Amino acid sequence: MQRGKVKWFNNEKGYGFIEVEGGSDVFVHFTAIQGEGFKTLEEGQEVSFEIVQGNRGPQAANVVKL
């Protein structure tokens, strides 16, 4: 599992990016966020996640808020 901080997340569009220290930013879609109810992330929030290869490159999967 990787760890990072949410760079930004757009609730209306349902996606954003996670900053990884020493690495490239990783795309995150709301469907990758674990948990119940409305799935969103806050700027600066710490998360753990896996990186998978999506249609447009690397993206976050199994995102857990820390």
Rank of each mutant, 00 (worst) to 15 (best):
K5D: 04
E36Q: 14
S48K: 12
E50G: 10
I33E: 02
G37I: 04
V20S: 12
G44P: 02
G16V: 01
Y15L: 05
E50V: 11
T31M: 05
M1S: 08
L41Q: 01
A60E: 01
Q59N: 06
G22T: 15
I51Y: 15
E46T: 08
F17S: 04
N10F: 04
Q2K: 15
M1D: 06
G16Y: 00
G16S: 00
K39W: 03
E42C: 11
F30D: 03
D25W: 03
T31K: 07
E36S: 12
N10R: 10
F38R: 09
N11D: 15
E42P: 08
Q59W: 10
F27M: 04
E12K: 15
G22C: 14
H29T: 02
E42K: 14
E36D: 11
G54C: 11
A60V: 03
S24V: 11
I18E: 00
G23Q: 14
V28Y: 03
F49C: 11
T31H: 07
K7H: 06
A32C: 06
K13Y: 10
S48L: 09
K5H: 13
V26D: 01
K65A: 13
K5P: 03
G22K: 08
Q2E: 14
S24M: 11
K7N: 11
I18Y: 00
K65E: 10
K7M: 07
G57E: 03
E46Y: 06
G37P: 05
V20G: 13
D25E: 06
E43W: 08
F49S: 01
E46H: 09
G44N: 06
A60Y: 00
T40K: 07
S48F: 12
P58L: 11
G22W: 11
R56G: 06
D25P: 06
K13I: 07
Q59V: 10
K13A: 06
G22E: 11
G44K: 09
Q2R: 12
K39L: 07
K13G: 04
G14N: 05
F27D: 02
Q53K: 09
A60I: 01
E42L: 12
E50N: 15
H29S: 02
D25V: 04
V64N: 11
A61E: 08
F38L: 06
A61P: 01
K7V: 09
L66Q: 14
E19A: 15
G44E: 08
G22D: 10
R56T: 04
R3A: 10
N10E: 06
E36F: 10
V28F: 07
N11I: 07
V63E: 01
I51H: 11
S24K: 14
E36I: 09
R56Y: 04
V63D: 01
H29W: 05
N55T: 03
A32N: 08
A32S: 09
